[in-house]
Amino acid sequence: MAAVYRQKRFNRRVNALVTLVCFALVAVAVALEHWAGMEPCPLCWFQRMAFVALGVVAAIGVIAPGWVVAGLGVLAAVSGVALAWRHLWLQSLPPSEVPACGPGLDYMLETFPLADAVAMILSGSGECAEVDRVLGVSIPAWTLLAFLILGTLMVLGNWRARGSARS
């Protein structure tokens, strides 16, 4: 019984940590936008949404850790990894191959059907190829690392939750 209690407490603490880190990273992104003048591109916005989704799933895991929470957390983290990877790829293109800058995110969402706007955002544009660095590392590289770590924590913090409840 004590082992089950310790395991559930561990699961909840890991989920609480992931929740706090996700929302702290979004707060840092907003701070960089407002105080450092780093304007987010559409892919940056989607990466923020992936952090929010992961944070919400982890918050649910504080209340009810388990394999469903782990799966949803991994889904959010893998989505974030894919977005960050795409962003890094756009940043690695030679200037001659960078796509032209597109319309702003607000304009795309107001003007085009949602599926078309999302497709345009995911294809990337010139503003996504601009490289802003924090501590010498590009922001998409930081987000890629964060999604990998947080996704791993979601698995570790929820993997044994179901099995420990039956013990």
Rank of each mutant, 00 (worst) to 15 (best):
N158L: 05
G66W: 04
V56H: 11
A24N: 01
V98R: 04
P94Q: 11
E33I: 06
G73H: 02
W159K: 08
G102V: 12
A77W: 02
V74T: 09
V57G: 03
L90D: 03
E110V: 07
F10T: 03
V21R: 05
I139A: 06
P140K: 04
A36F: 10
L88G: 12
A117S: 14
A3L: 11
L32D: 13
R13C: 00
V56Y: 06
R133N: 15
P103K: 01
S125D: 15
W89G: 01
S164K: 04
L105H: 10
V57I: 10
G104Q: 12
S79V: 02
P113A: 12
P113L: 13
S138V: 13
V4R: 12
Q47N: 13
E110K: 15
G80M: 08
V14G: 00
V56M: 07
L32W: 09
P103C: 09
H34S: 14
I63N: 02
L43W: 07
P94D: 12
E127F: 12
C128Y: 07
G73R: 02
F10P: 00
L72S: 03
F10H: 02
Q91R: 09
F112W: 14
V57F: 03
Q91D: 05
P42R: 00
L17H: 01
T111S: 15
G71N: 04
V134K: 04
A77S: 10
A59E: 03
W85A: 15
Q7T: 11
L72D: 04
S167V: 12
L83I: 03
C22Q: 01
I149T: 09
R160F: 14
V56A: 14
V28W: 14
L145Q: 11
A3K: 11
P103L: 06
Q47E: 09
L20C: 05
P42M: 04
V21P: 01
G102E: 07
V137C: 11
T152N: 14
G157F: 02
L109Q: 09
I60G: 14
L114D: 10
Y5T: 11
G66D: 05
A59N: 05
V155W: 06
Q47H: 04
R48G: 08
A115W: 09
G136L: 13
V137G: 12
L83R: 03
G151H: 00
V131S: 11
L93T: 05
L72N: 03
V131Q: 14
W67D: 03
V26S: 00
L88K: 06
M154D: 01
A117W: 06
E127G: 08
V155Y: 07
L105Q: 12
G151Y: 05
M154N: 04
A36I: 08
T143C: 15
P99K: 01
L25K: 01
N158Y: 06
L54C: 03
L144T: 02
A16F: 05
F46Q: 08
R48W: 08
A100H: 10
Q47A: 12
G73I: 03
M154Q: 12
V21K: 02
L105S: 03
G126E: 05
G73F: 00
E33T: 15
M38P: 04
L105I: 14
V21E: 05
A31W: 15
L122F: 09
Q47R: 15
G71K: 06
A141G: 07
